[in-house]
């Protein structure tokens, strides 16, 4: 492959990157920082499921997804082709 990047350009880019990050980001809350406690109101998937050794009395009535339509925020989310729905195909640039 033809080389275009020069040592000088690399060093220059690094110097400006170092200057750009000189302003520190906002400090995290101490507990969040140490133990990763999710912020209130944040709905985070990261922790994932906890296991259980309990059963459930709530019957999960099985529904056929082929007879349902998505009815969450996709209904109100505006996309270029309408509300939430987007036809398969090449993505808009």
């Amino acid at each position: 492959m033809k080389t275009t990047i020069a040592t000088l350009a690399l060093a220059g880019s690094l110097a400006s990157a170092l200057a750009a990050i000189a302003t520190p980001a906002a400090a995290e809350d101490a507990k969040e920082k140490c133990y990763g406690i999710a912020m209130k109101g944040q709905n985070d998937c990261a922790a994932g499921p906890g296991t259980t050794c309990a059963g459930t009395s709530k019957i999960d009535y099985q529904q056929n997804a082929f007879k349902l339509v998505p009815k969450g925020t996709c209904v109100s989310m505006k996309t270029p082709t309408g509300h939430g729905m987007l036809e398969q195909g090449p993505a808009p640039a």
Binding site: N43, C45, A47, A65, L68, K71, G72
Partner: peptide, 23 residues
């Protein structure tokens, strides 16, 4: 377990559809 891993997807399609899809 899947609900707790994909809460954004759950919001997007709604709980009924998500659960049917998960199952």
């Amino acid at each position: 377990a899947l609900v707790s891993r994909f809460p954004a997807a759950l919001n997007i399609v709604g709980p009924d559809f998500f659960r049917a899809m998960a199952q």
